[in-house]
């Protein structure tokens, strides 16, 4: 019996021994931690090729949006080692309050500075009746213009923290900027060429703004929200009445609702990339922008000219 108890007591120590800690292996390096995927790939564009900078992503790439994200112990370890903690801002990192209380010294960089936020309530079809509170829409990275501002903010923070490599950061930013500009010059729609659409992802408000869509309805089925039958019925009626044929969704929980509604009113579902997961490389951001552009172009070619 005694032996068994002894074994039980040893158990937790055995487990820690298995996972050898890798604390502070980086001396003389600048450890930059991005809060999640879009911030990471934007930052990657700025830090690429600069010696002595280690860029890490806190949340795992498959996490998706950070609503209700719970920090894992691994995340805390990453944050604790950070010289700079890049966040998307605009309310996306709701876990941050607790973290800042724990690590008051944490150098947080809010990349949303200087970006005009959309307010989610503007587009809610059912907003007039029930929901009068407005909340900020934090999915800023989905418009190329905002992505560029975020990259600029990241660059400024890096230059300030690591002035020795200022020139390289700025060169990277310049390259990124010209890529964004050449992307923007290929837009299929000019503003005001308003097509009506229903979107199934909060972030697509920003895409709609960039392409000049009018969001006639919005069903948010992200993670912990499920739309009610009434909400679906209202959108269906509205879509029928307004003859809306465009339904933009991400390949997530919203897709089932998009297909359900498109079936009912006879429109088509188009999958856009919310850029919350994907390859961890710097080209990923522009690739995703171009992918969305191609999809939107297809949607417009199918019956809209």
């Amino acid at each position: 019996m005694k032996k068994i108890i002894l074994l039980f007591i040893c158990f937790p120590f055995l487990l820690t021994a298995c996972t050898v800690s890798s604390a502070k292996e980086y001396e003389n390096t600048l450890v930059v931690v991005a809060s999640f995927y879009p911030v990471y790939i934007l930052a990657k564009n700025i830090t690429e090729g600069v010696p002595g900078v280690v860029l890490e992503n806190m949340a795992q790439p498959q996490t998706g949006c950070l609503h209700d994200y719970q920090l894992t112990t691994k995340d805390r370890k990453a944050i604790e080692n950070a010289d700079l903690f890049l966040i998307n801002g605009a309310g996306m990192e709701s876990f941050l309050n607790g973290v800042q209380r724990q690590y008051p010294q944490l150098p947080v960089v809010d990349t949303s500075q200087g970006i005009a936020l959309l307010h989610s309530h503007q587009h809610h079809h059912h907003a007039e009746e029930e929901h009068h509170h407005e909340f900020e829409n934090g999915h800023i990275w989905l418009s190329s213009e905002n992505g560029m501002i975020q990259a600029e903010n990241i660059c400024n923070a890096l230059v300030q923290k690591d002035p020795d490599h200022a020139e390289q950061y700025q060169k990277n930013l310049e390259a990124f900027r010209s890529n964004i500009h050449s992307f923007q010059s290929t837009q299929p729609l000019s503003k005001g060429n308003a097509q009506k659409a229903v979107i199934f992802h909060e972030g697509f408000d920003y895409i709609s703004e960039e392409y000049g869509f009018v969001v006639e309805g919005e069903i948010l089925a992200e993670e912990n929200q499920t739309p009610s039958a009434k909400e679906l019925a209202q959108i269906i009626d509205h879509a029928k009445q307004q003859q809306i044929k465009l339904f933009f969704t991400a390949d997530d929980a919203g897709r089932a609702y998009a297909e359900l509604i498109a079936n009912e009113v006879g429109g088509s579902v188009y999958l856009l990339d919310p850029i919350t997961s994907g390859p961890m490389e710097k080209e990923a951001y522009l690739n995703a922008l171009y992918y969305n552009q191609k999809t939107i172009q297809e949607a417009l070619d199918n019956g809209y000219s």
Partner: peptide, 20 residues
């Protein structure tokens, strides 16, 4: 399911959804 902190994705199973 909570690996990488992503349990929220599965919370729809807790309440269920007969509409889809």
């Amino acid at each position: 399911l909570s690996q990488e902190g992503g349990f929220a994705k599965f919370s729809s199973y807790l309440i269920g959804d007969v509409l889809t």
